[in-house]
Design a protein around this nucleic acid. Structure first.
Length: 139
DNA sequence: GCCAACGTTGGC
DNA sequence: GCCAACGTTGGC
């Protein structure tokens, strides 16, 4: 199956790209939404994931890569929740802002734009490629 | 700081 | 099973 593309959001105040790079690897825990969980569980090792800073920044700052597929989220006290492991792949040369993505013809239809509260969402290959292009970066 | 959008909860 | 109330998230 072809590689899929994703976008995850994080508030820099709680977990920033910088911290992620410093950590070198992180378990993407804390997702408590069924739709987001479905997306997490569909991730495959090697899939590329855009890393978006919500609230502060409001821009895509880097690319992460799935290092481990969905497994139980140990931070969940109850319920059946999953997390994946992500590793930093590379930073975007130029962050791509929400404003840009809302106006760009290719990216304006992203699930993430339409549903701003969904913390894990899929992107088409085209949308993914377009954001890299806007960010002056090659995967 | 406010408000809209959305998800969840609880009463009926 | 529906819907109102409430809480949370995130953009502005």
């Amino acid at each position: 199956m072809a590689k899929q593309h994703w976008l995850v959001k994080s508030e820099p105040e709680s977990y920033s790209w910088t911290k992620f790079v410093a950590d070198g690897r992180t378990a993407w825990t804390g997702v408590r939404n069924f739709t987001a969980r479905l997306n997490l569980r569909a991730m495959k090792v090697g899939d590329l994931v855009l890393f978006y800073h919500s609230v502060t920044g409001k821009d895509v700052v880097g690319i992460a890569k799935v290092a481990r597929e969905a497994y139980p989220d140990a931070t969940a006290k109850e319920g059946d929740w999953s997390c994946v492991d992500l590793v930093p792949h590379k930073a975007l040369k130029q962050p791509v802002t929400l404003d840009t993505m809302k106006t760009d013809e290719v990216t304006r239809d992203m699930v993430f734009i339409r549903q701003s509260r969904l913390s894990v969402s899929p992107l088409t290959e085209k949308q993914f490629a377009r954001i890299l292009e806007l960010g002056g970066t090659k995967a």
